[in-house]
Amino acid sequence: MKPQAGKHMGDPRLEMLLDKEAIRDCIHRYCRGIDRADEAALLSSYWPDAHDCHGAYDGPVSGFFDRVRTAWARRPRNIHNVGNILITFLESDRAAVETYFIAFQRGRGADGVERQVLLCGRYCDVFEKRAEEWRVLKRTVVYDWVDHQEPPSEGEAERFGPRHPIGAAWPDDPLYAMLCDNG
């Protein structure tokens, strides 16, 4: 059963908890979007007029999306894990959100060279609520740790061995079969 949006018996504490949970859900959708090459999930985490400062990119979120699509075409392997999420409401429809992340990334760059890196840092976001929905309006990625690693020499079949299924991009990841299963 899908939860209903809107006012909940006029209790501001309950509204605040529901707003915080909606913000957390948005952060988690972003991670799914990036890691599973799930464009719908990624797009749903930002407002179309958002600004993103993400490492080498600083500009309208549409430009960030273009960079992500280019990276997805090279079939990277990403895992983003978020931890501490501190939400401070600035106004009833704006919040400052600091989210700690750990990201493992492996893939070929535009130059064809495979790289692997462990990144740790924080998403410092301004979230905005529009029509009962919270999304990122402005994101600044703050990097606190970067560890360049040697990519493995063997392929996935050798590394994963009998461990199946192996995570994949949308729509091939087992998650999407589960989400579409109505039984």
Rank of each mutant, 00 (worst) to 15 (best):
R106S: 10
V97S: 01
V82W: 13
D52I: 00
E114C: 14
V126P: 15
Y57D: 00
V126I: 15
F101A: 07
E39A: 10
S62E: 08
E39F: 08
G63F: 04
A110Y: 00
D111T: 14
L42A: 04
P48K: 09
S45Y: 06
P60E: 13
W47K: 15
E114S: 15
A95E: 00
W72L: 04
L43M: 11
S62P: 02
E98H: 12
S45D: 11
I102G: 10
N78I: 06
E132H: 14
F101M: 09
S62Y: 00
H80R: 06
C53L: 02
A110M: 07
S92M: 08
A56S: 05
R130A: 09
S44T: 07
F64H: 06
F89I: 10
G121M: 09
P48W: 03
V113E: 03
S44H: 03
N84R: 13
A71S: 12
G121Q: 14
T70G: 12
D49H: 11
F65C: 10
E128M: 10
Q105I: 04
A103C: 14
A131H: 05
C53S: 08
T99I: 03
G109Y: 11
G109D: 03
C124E: 13
A96N: 10
Q116E: 15
I102M: 15
R69M: 01
E132M: 14
E98W: 06
F89L: 11
A41T: 09
S62C: 01
R77P: 03
G55W: 10
I79M: 04
E39S: 05
F101Q: 11
Y123A: 14
D58E: 08
A96I: 05
F64W: 04
T88D: 03
A95V: 12
D125T: 04
V82F: 01
E91C: 02
V97D: 00
A103T: 05
R75M: 09
V117Y: 01
D35S: 02
D93A: 13
S44K: 00
L86Q: 00
A40R: 06
A40H: 09
N84Y: 01
E39K: 04
D49A: 13
A56M: 11
R122F: 07
G83I: 12
R69W: 03
L90V: 10
L90G: 11
Q116R: 14
E133H: 11
I87H: 03
L119V: 00
C120F: 02
D125F: 04
A50I: 07
A96K: 07
E114R: 13
I102H: 12
P76V: 13
V97L: 02
Y100M: 07
R77W: 08
A71M: 08
G107N: 13
G107F: 08
V113K: 14
R122A: 15
F65G: 03
L90F: 03
D125S: 09
K129H: 11
R74Q: 14
Y57H: 09
Y57K: 01
L86M: 00
V61K: 06
F104I: 05
D52E: 05
E114W: 13
I34G: 02
